[in-house]
Every structure is written in structure tokens, then in C-alpha cells.
Design a protein around this nucleic acid. Structure first.
Lengths: 184, 184
DNA sequence: GTCTATATGCAGATAGAC
DNA sequence: GTCTATCTGCATATAGAC
């Protein structure tokens, strides 16, 4: 694999695990098996490399969500598939995780790809919900935007509860609790 | 205020904003207006001080939740009051925030108070939901543990979405979306 | 493109004086 | 209890050789 690619992927991994504040250029270089000079040749610094890595993670998140949301079946089926898909729960969400990082939130260049990715997710879920409403799956009173935010929040919050507990169980409970409400 | 107290409160603030990885002893000392020697006289190091600060934050979270959950009214009323209470949404949850920190999660001494606090919250919500079931407010099929996890996840995830968006709006949408489901 | 040298300051303490 | 001195190593680069 090429150096730039190794740098981006290593940065993605480190940001996922340790956040921006907890990730050093030195750690990135070691993980990517790249020298100091090499890293600074390809990127102006830690922030520029992080930006590239976060954008990549956003692209990956969208593709992964579409894998379940763009399937045949009712809206409820597709949302259920999305919620119940295999996840490494204790790792959390590689994009949502960055919302906890003060330097990501403070830097518009770093926050933008996080914002855009999660906004896209809510929008995509809202589209699926709206389709379900059109088919009479959901009550006419259901607000797609709100329900989409609730679904995305259950996932992001489920990760928080699971990591705190050291077990995927609270994540799974939260998802099943949501599905019981949605299907009731 | 006494030195120990200032150290604990300053550490709470810094952990809330920057996490454990992003908080240095030096920053704590500056915020607490305490010297190096003073801090190391009262605490064996950063981890011990963080432990005390996280326990304090856990106590505060419980008290704040009970303020709404231990009120008169139906279970739904009390949960609604809890969900809708005034929050500094963009700051997030001082306890849940730590679930993102790799060193908190890796150290049993630091993870324990985070785990216990969020487990307590889920348990307390489950009690309220069980009371609501007994009064016929919720369907007999509702599982209190699961619904409690869903509610806690919506809050924690709502913070994530709001911080990413730079606006409280997704948090509020997620909460209202949940309440619409619960009250339907 | 990649490497090594160099630089300032912070991280996270320990030691001993006052 | 608090202060200052001291220590090792990392953070985050920049400069210039190869």
C-alpha cells in the first residue's frame, strides 16, 4: 500500500481509538510505518492528516449505512436491519466518537466532516421513514426528522452505555427497546 | 474553598471538557490555583485525582436525575420532565463523555464510577417505568430495562449529535421523537 | 520522497527545602 | 502543606541533506 494511504488509514484507526487530542504524529508514523519527514512531506501537519482521515471515515459510514438502508422490504424492515447489523459495539462509532473531542469541535475544518456525515445519516433515515409513512406503515403523526434523530441517537448513545459498562448489553437493550416502540 | 476541593472541582471541569487523555496535571493546577507540590501532596497522581473527580460527577448526576424522577405525577410525566429539563446540551454529559476516553475505559479504577453511575441511571429509569406498568400506563409487553436503556441512550446520543452539529437541535428532535413513541 | 538533526515546551512525576 | 529544582521522554514541528 502507498504511504499516503497507510497514513490515512492509520490515522483513522488512531482517531477512532484515542480521538484527536490523544493521537500524536509520532504514533501515526509508527502505525503507518512512515518516517517523520515522509508524513510532513505529504501533509502539512496533524490537523490536515486528521481531516483527510475523518472524511474517509465519513465516506465509509455512509456506504455501510446504505448497505442496509438500500435493501428491499418495508421501511421498518430496513431500519431493523440497519439497527441490528453486526457491529463492534465496544469500539463505538468512528465518526460519532469525534464529537467528544474538544479540538475537533473547536476546529471548523475538523468538525465539518463529522457534522456532514451525521447529518447525512439523519437525513437518510428520515427519507426511509417518510417512505414508510407513504405506505401507511407509520402513523400520519410521525415526524420523520424527529424519529430519524431518535434512531441515530439510540445508536450513538448505545455505544456510550456499552463502553461504560464494558459490555455490548446496554446497546442491545437500547436498540430492542427502540424497536419495540417503533413496531408497537 | 479548600485546596482539595478546588482540585476536585477543577478536575471535574477539565475532564468534562477535554477528557482524561486531554487533561494534564499542569492544567489542573492552573485551574485550581494550586502548586505542583500541593497537588501531589493531596493525590498520588493524575489518576487518583481523576478517580475522585469522576466519583463526584457521578454523585451529582444521580442527584440531578432524582430531582425530576422523584416528583409527583405519572411515570410518563416524570420521565418527560427528566428528558425535557434544562440542559447545557452542547457541553454534553460529564459522565457519559468519559466513555469515549480510551484510558478511562482501560483502567478499571476509572471506568468503575462511570459504569456504576450510568447503570444506576438505567436502573432508576427502569423502576419508574415498572411503576408506570403497574398503573397501566404502559402496555404489559413493555420491558422496563430495555426502555430504560433506550431513554438513557437517546440522551447520550443526543449530545453526540448536537455537538457534531454545533447546535442543540438534533438533541431536541431525538428527545421529542422518543416522547412521541412513548406516548403513542 | 524519505532521512536525520535540532528545537521549544509540555507531560507526569520525584526530591528535598521551607 | 506548599514551593522550587530537576528529570526523562513525548508533542509537534522545521531545516536541510540524500
Amino acid at each position: 500500500m502507498e504511504t499516503v494511504e497507510r497514513l490515512i488509514r492509520s490515522t483513522q484507526e488512531l482517531l477512532w481509538e484515542r480521538g484527536y487530542v490523544g493521537t500524536s504524529p509520532k504514533a501515526i508514523q509508527a502505525a503507518a510505518d512512515a518516517g517523520q519527514g515522509s508524513m510532513y512531506h505529504h501533509f502539512s501537519g496533524k490537523a490536515a492528516l486528521a481531516r483527510a482521515a475523518i472524511e474517509r471515515s465519513g465516506t465509509e459510514l455512509r456506504a455501510a449505512a446504505d448497505e442496509q438502508l438500500n435493501t428491499p422490504g418495508t421501511a421498518t424492515d430496513r431500519i431493523t436491519r440497519y439497527l441490528e447489523r453486526d457491529r463492534d459495539v465496544l469500539r463505538g462509532c468512528q465518526v460519532g466518537r469525534l464529537a467528544a473531542d474538544p479540538e475537533v469541535i473547536a476546529d471548523p475544518e475538523l468538525r465539518a466532516p463529522v457534522d456532514e456525515t451525521l447529518a447525512w445519516l439523519r437525513g437518510r433515515l428520515a427519507e426511509v421513514i417518510a417512505e414508510g409513512k407513504d405506505n401507511g406503515e407509520f402513523a400520519a403523526t410521525v415526524d420523520p426528522q424527529r424519529l430519524a434523530a431518535t434512531i441515530a441517537a439510540v445508536l450513538q448513545g448505545g455505544y456510550v452505555l456499552a463502553r461504560a459498562a464494558g459490555s455490548p448489553e446496554p446497546f442491545e437493550q437500547a436498540v430492542q427497546g427502540l424497536l419495540e416502540l417503533v413496531k408497537a
